[in-house]
């Protein structure tokens, strides 16, 4: 069953905390929320303390923060329709670029593993891909209007320049650049959720994707390459994604976020019933029909909806969570 021990509660935000993001080295955490600030947390001795408060970047709620893979930049997506890029070149965090173009709330921002691409998405139904040039220049490389409704989340494949998006239209879409004409196109639409898909997470290989939804389920999707030995039909020489597992009956409210640990393979979920759940793949799990078991349930992880969870990329079992209760919490999971 394992146990999840509270390491520390990080206080400081006023109002709902929407998101947290670990620095790629795992020693720093960024958080953001309704109070229009970003807080940077780091360790001092055995305690985590607030190292900086970035408060002059956005006019409205900051919905999401994302560290670049190199760790030198932090991107923030806001309901004020802009995305800000922060760096520490001057010694202090400063906003050195603002990405404008979305018509209304930007809900998510993500850096590609290569660090050369950035993606944003909005209630305006579009996903934008930005090319990162030198000198803090960001150029729009594509505006993808594939979704029928708000786009809630964008994430990149862990190794490739393949982008996944989740939407209020209940679908997940995958995009990549067509090398022939440099056009970004939708290469797959994943249909199965019965309501808004709130968040996504790839496993460490990028061959599986987990999604969570307002339909109170988590789904696991598997990629089948052209010519796959299982005989799953593909078209246009593109891989197909199939839902191979649905975890239903565990969550009693909307599942807002999901994190798939690239070190341990554990899946953590953030739910509107104030609970953090941890799922583990069974040892005898069949790849084409995997079994995930509910490994741990942390009741009253927060006193209100849990909005975000993220496994630390380097410290095994260290989990961060953010909630409507204005708190950020750090947890240690031990098997």
């Amino acid at each position: 069953m394992g146990k999840l021990d509270l390491v520390q509660t990080l206080l400081g935000h006023e109002g709902r905390v929407w998101d947290i993001c670990w620095h790629p080295q795992g020693n720093t955490l960024a958080s953001c929320g309704e109070d229009k600030t970003i807080r940077i947390w780091g360790r001092e001795g055995s305690k985590w303390v607030c190292k900086a408060v970035l408060s002059d970047g956005h006019q409205r709620t900051i919905r999401e923060v994302a560290w670049s893979p190199c760790g030198n930049y932090l991107a923030s997506a806001s309901f004020d329709a802009t995305t800000a890029i922060w760096d520490k070149k001057s010694g202090q965090f400063e906003c050195n670029a603002t990405l404008e173009g979305h018509e209304n709330e930007v809900k998510s921002v993500a850096w590609a593993k290569s660090g050369h691409l950035l993606a944003t998405c909005s209630r305006d139904k579009s996903v934008w891909v930005w090319e990162v040039a030198d000198d803090d220049e960001y150029e729009c490389a594509a505006v993808l209007n594939a979704h029928a409704q708000d786009v809630k989340k964008v994430i990149w494949h862990p190794h490739l320049d393949v982008l996944a998006s989740a939407s209020y239209d209940n679908t997940i879409k995958l995009f990549k650049e067509d090398e022939a004409d440099n056009d970004w196109t939708c290469i797959a639409t994943l249909n199965s959720h019965e309501s808004t898909v709130w968040s996504l997470a790839f496993d460490s290989t990028g061959t599986r994707l987990a999604s969570c939804s307002d339909d109170c389920t988590v789904k696991i999707w598997k990629q089948y390459l052209p010519g796959n030995p299982e005989g799953i039909v593909t078209s246009d020489n593109e891989p197909v994604w199939k839902c191979v597992c649905t975890l239903s009956g565990y969550h009693s409210r909307t599942v807002y976020d999901i994190s798939w640990c690239h070190n341990t393979g554990l899946i953590a979920t953030a739910c509107g019933d104030d609970i953090i759940r941890i799922f583990k793949e069974a040892e005898d799990s069949n790849p084409s029909e995997p079994t995930f078991v509910l490994y741990h349930t942390c009741h009253e992880a927060h006193t209100q909806d849990v909005n975000s969870v993220m496994w630390n990329p380097s410290v095994q079992g260290l989990l961060a969570s953010a909630s409507d209760d204005a708190e950020v919490k750090l947890w240690q999971f031990t098997e």
Binding site: R16, E105, D150, T196
Partner: peptide, 15 residues
């Protein structure tokens, strides 16, 4: 119904 129960949309609307 879907709109009035989506807390992200509600939060944005109230701003």
């Amino acid at each position: 119904n879907k709109q009035i129960n989506d807390k992200e949309r509600i939060a944005a609307a109230m701003e």
